[in-house]
Nucleic acid binder design. Structure first.
Lengths: 238, 238
DNA sequence: TTGTCGTCGACTGCCTACAGCATACAGTTT
DNA sequence: AAACTGTATGCTGTAGGCAGTCGACGACAA
């Protein structure tokens, strides 16, 4: 061993991974709108790469639910419906409730300490009114709980779901504010005490709060005319 | 409308999808062994396509846990450990228990009828000692239960998990035999009666039976020397 | 012998090129 | 006028090709 145990992390990420993150960012930030037709060559030019990494990125993003792939027509930014958000949050509730239960049984002291740190950082972010940091810390905390469950398959699946939740979550994060972090604190206490049922119960309530908060917020929204995603064509040149 | 409502299905699947299924088949059938280095050009030649569809297939298979992608080194058939199988089956139990609960609340009469049909087919397959058909029907039945839950996100996730379970499951399917289908029958009855708790309970027991059956069967196996997957090299030519 | 360095070759990652298909528009027919 | 058909064009799906990279192997030194 040369220096440390985690030496092989800073891999010069492949171009494909960079493209994946870039496109996710474009979607979350709203520069790419739901339903929009993603033309490979345009994205390639925009990002300064060739079509190949873009194609591969789009396929992976399709697997994670960010875009829909229509064979022969191309990729379209996924249009999240209200119903789907509800179902997604329900699944998250299920996965994370179980994670909390297992975490209470398996968590290490270091893991609990990490949770406490994240909780403090989250509260600070909320007080500073830094929504972005708050959402990020929230995700990190949930991820850490799932990690402490000791079930890697569960962790992987939950992470996948959480990434999508985050997309929906950002707009409504401000509303929940500090109460969310009080619930986190109670959750951590239950995990530290090894009280599986209480941890599960708190997590269930917590995720259900997020869910109802989200649904309320969006209930008043105008129902957008669900434009059927069609392949766009560049206007004929001259 | 020309003739029927479902006219646009029989798309000539893209080459990539065909390749995905082919490779899955090669893995499940054991022609590609766990840990084996998958060289793109070899697979391409074997399947009679170019490297591109193979690359894309490998990436998708990586997302589903069939192969591991090491950047710069290539793809390796995933090596399923006992612990991972346990965790995977635990996750399946979680997802399907919830599905059964929801299915009991939401199932349509047509859906229940479909379940009954599948159950009959499964029993027939077991009696005919047709393991392959039995496993396939088992998967189909579970998929149908999940479908009846009405939660599409849950269904998609469960399907993903189920595909991997099937890989592990085939070797031990014979052992469970008919008892498994008795449990299915009880499950369907509970769903038809709309008894959510009972349906959930039966499914929990059922998946736990499968899990312990699997673990028992593999407990006696010799622990294979976990050869670290390394990039294979063709012997230097002459 | 054991550890380190240099070389070589195969394989991956990415780019470019081409064929086929899907859509939109224009012309034609009823 | 409305609907259908032909044609043009841009996009996807696939192929082929090139440069960079990683691991294996051998030589050399401790």
């Amino acid at each position: 061993m040369l220096v440390s145990d985690q030496a092989k992390i800073p891999r010069p990420a492949t171009l494909r991974e960079s493209v994946i993150e870039a496109i996710q960012e474009l979607i979350v930030s709203g520069q790419l709108k739901p339903g929009q037709h993603l033309v490979e060559s345009e994205l390639a030019e925009l990002l300064g790469v060739s079509r190949q990494p873009v194609r591969e990125a789009l396929q992976q993003l399709s697997g994670e639910g960010w875009v829909d792939l229509h064979p022969g027509q191309g990729a379209f930014v996924h249009v999240p419906t209200l119903q789907e958000a509800d179902q997604l949050l329900a699944v998250r509730a299920l996965l994370e409730t179980e994670s909390a239960r297992l975490a209470a049984l398996n968590a290490s002291p270091e893991g609990v300490q990490e949770l406490r740190d994240l909780c403090l950082r989250g509260r600070a972010a909320v007080e500073a009114d830094d929504v972005e940091a708050a959402v990020a810390t929230n995700s990190a905390l949930h991820a850490q709980v799932v990690l402490q469950s000791g079930n890697k398959v569960l962790a992987e699946l939950a992470a996948q779901v959480a990434r999508r939740v985050r997309w929906y979550h950002t707009p409504v994060a401000r509303q929940r504010g500090m109460t969310s972090w009080d619930e986190h604190q109670a959750l951590i206490a239950a995990i530290e005490a090894g009280d599986a049922d209480r941890a599960a119960h708190i997590m269930r309530e917590h995720t259900e709060h997020t869910r109802s908060s989200y649904m309320e917020q969006r209930a008043g929204e105008p129902v957008e005319p669900v434009q059927k995603p069609v392949r766009r064509r560049r206007p004929r040149s001259i």
